[in-house]
Amino acid sequence: MDLEKLKRIKNLIIAKILFVFGWIYDLAMRILNAVNKTPIEKDKDRRNVRIKQFAIATSILYVIFNSIFI
């Protein structure tokens, strides 16, 4: 197979895994009802923290999967 095609397939698999991870995270937050428990001011602060945590976790997973497939 062509090397470019393998790279595209690898990136597609990584994107799908990260999408599923985000979807599961979103479902967990909805189940816990964590977004709507607090007043608006505190909710914005907590949401910002969750966004940062999600971004860090996603980037760590991306690096791990990327290093595995290399």
Rank of each mutant, 00 (worst) to 15 (best):
V35S: 08
L32R: 10
L32E: 12
V49M: 15
V49E: 14
N66K: 12
A15R: 12
I40S: 07
K37C: 01
R8W: 01
M29R: 09
E4W: 01
K42S: 13
A57V: 01
D43C: 02
N11A: 14
L61W: 02
K10A: 15
M29G: 04
G22F: 04
T38S: 06
A34G: 02
N11W: 15
D45W: 03
I13V: 14
K5A: 07
I68C: 06
I40T: 07
I60S: 14
R30L: 05
L61P: 02
P39F: 01
I70D: 10
I51M: 11
F69Y: 05
V49R: 07
A57H: 05
V49H: 14
V49T: 14
A57I: 00
R8G: 05
V35M: 02
V49S: 09
K10N: 11
E4Q: 06
A34Q: 06
D43L: 01
E4R: 04
L61N: 02
K7H: 07
I51L: 12
S67Q: 08
I56E: 04
E4G: 03
I24V: 12
A28N: 13
L12P: 00
A28D: 08
F65A: 09
F65K: 03
L12W: 09
T38A: 07
L6S: 07
K52W: 08
Q53K: 13
I68K: 04
M1V: 04
V63S: 13
F21N: 00
L3N: 07
I64F: 10
W23T: 15
K10V: 01
N11G: 14
L12V: 05
N11R: 15
V63D: 06
K44L: 13
I17S: 10
I31W: 11
L27R: 09
I14K: 13
D43A: 06
K42G: 05
L18K: 01
D45A: 12
R46N: 15
F69R: 08
T38W: 04
N36P: 03
